[in-house]
């Protein structure tokens, strides 16, 4: 414990001569650095083992042959394409992820910017509403959503894509927090006033001033939404829609190997997507939002 206590924030330990010793690279600062490195390695290794083992186990499980001493096989992975219901469910979940993250941002970002600029009194209300889904768990929401979805089905048909209506609500807290942090980091007032005084309309302010400035927040929010939608089970299952997770769960009873293979693939897909997008978000010169 004392080791951890004496740690500083590594990148912040200045590489300068220590006033007491006068020598660089020795003394308390260097020791602090070494302890910090040891601590980081230990944490990453322990956490790595904890988080990788189940994923490794899933992969191992999908490569098992049938019967004792059977050779390793990729039959489970090949069999994915033998289940058309599964393929449909994968497509639907991907579409839901795209719709939800886009719709969530379109609904929330302009509202938040607008409220900041014109309706500061409403800010608390918006925050409360956005964080409310954290207080109303999906399992509770679905109890009340069942009658609402009778109307949704009446107006929009019974497509699984209508789940996006509920999913936008589910992602609100995460989207809100990320966007809020992003907007806090910039001076919305000054930026928009400057743009307006140069003759920009509100859509231009949103798309070409605010959005590029909170680009990484927008990306983060979209990523969280995608990850959440790809993993959603509760609402889809209890409203009797077939999304990816429901299909996997159903298939798990018939063919555990195939369903675990799909589950693993979806996990990898989400992970690769998030890593890739987080690198895109880092390029400062990346062109963003050319739509307007």
């Amino acid at each position: 414990m004392s080791d951890i206590m004496s740690l500083g924030f590594g990148n912040t330990v200045p590489v300068v001569e220590h006033p007491d010793t006068g020598k660089p690279g020795r003394g308390p600062l260097a020791r602090r650095r070494r302890r910090l490195t040891a601590f980081r390695v230990a944490v990453f290794v322990v956490m790595g083992v904890f988080f990788f083992t189940p994923i490794l186990a899933m992969f191992e499980f999908t490569t098992r042959g049938t019967g004792l001493g059977a050779p390793r096989t990729l039959a489970s992975w090949r069999a994915i394409f033998d289940y058309p219901d599964l393929i449909t469910a994968i497509q639907v979940s991907l579409e839901l992820a795209a719709i939800t993250s886009a719709a969530g941002l379109f609904l929330l970002v302009p509202t938040m910017v607008w409220v900041r600029l014109r309706l500061p009194r409403l800010q608390r209300v918006i925050e409360f509403l956005c964080l409310l889904p954290l207080t109303v768990p999906a399992i509770v929401l679905v109890v009340g959503l069942a009658p609402v979805y009778a109307w949704v089905t009446y107006f929009f048909g019974s497509s699984t894509l209508t789940l996006a209506f509920a999913y936008v609500v589910l992602v609100l807290p995460y989207t809100y927090r990320v966007i809020d942090a992003g907007l806090r980091g910039i001076d919305v007032q000054t930026l928009s006033e400057a743009a307006r005084s140069l003759g920009a309309g509100w859509p231009t302010v949103m798309w070409r001033i605010i959005a590029p400035n909170i680009r990484s927040a927008l990306l983060n929010a979209a990523l969280l939404s995608v990850a959440l939608v790809l993993g959603e089970f509760t609402i889809a299952s209890l409203l009797s829609f077939q999304n990816l997770q429901v299909a996997i769960n159903f298939l798990g009873r018939a063919n555990a190997g195939v369903s675990i293979a799909v589950a693993l693939a979806s996990l990898f897909f989400a992970f690769i997507l998030l890593v890739a997008l987080s690198f895109v978000g880092r390029r400062r010169s990346a062109p963003v939002h050319e739509e307007e």
Binding site: P54, N220, A227, L274
Partner: peptide
């Protein structure tokens, strides 16, 4: 990024992951 995925990684996939790890026929 991994945390972003894993934090939402509840549900069916997670249950299967642990069944494949420490279930009756699990790896461990």
């Amino acid at each position: 990024s991994a945390c972003g995925v894993l934090a939402q990684f509840g549900g069916v996939t997670l249950a299967f992951a642990f069944i494949a790890t420490i279930g009756g026929e699990g790896l461990i």
